[in-house]
């Protein structure tokens, strides 16, 4: 799967499942500051990623993820 395809799927999850405003979801967007995903929300995001891409994400792998782009990169590496 190409990076842009991963991004499209991530964007779809954010917009459809989490109700985040579509225009806010860019590769540069910060999860916490820009998308208002708090510590509880990040657990939901991980669950949505795991279901969508049929993968498992460890908490440690999230340590370096603070933007949509970083999330896409992590997912891309695991698919």
């Amino acid at each position: 799967m190409e990076t842009n395809e991963v991004f499209d799927k991530v964007k779809g999850l954010f917009v459809e499942d989490l109700g985040i405003d579509e225009s806010k979801v860019t590769m540069e967007a910060k999860l916490e500051e820009d998308l208002e995903i708090d510590s509880l929300g990040i657990v939901e995001v991980v669950m949505a990623f795991e279901d969508e891409f049929d993968i498992e994400i460890d908490d440690e792998e999230l340590a370096d993820v603070s933007t949509v782009g970083e999330a896409v990169k992590l997912l891309h590496s695991k698919i």
């Binding site: 989490l18 109700g19 985040i20 405003d21 208002e36 509880l40």
Partner: peptide, 12 residues
């Protein structure tokens, strides 16, 4: 509720 407070907030 989604219409009233936005889906992102309502889901919480």
């Amino acid at each position: 509720a989604n219409e009233y407070m936005g889906k992102q907030h309502a889901r919480k």
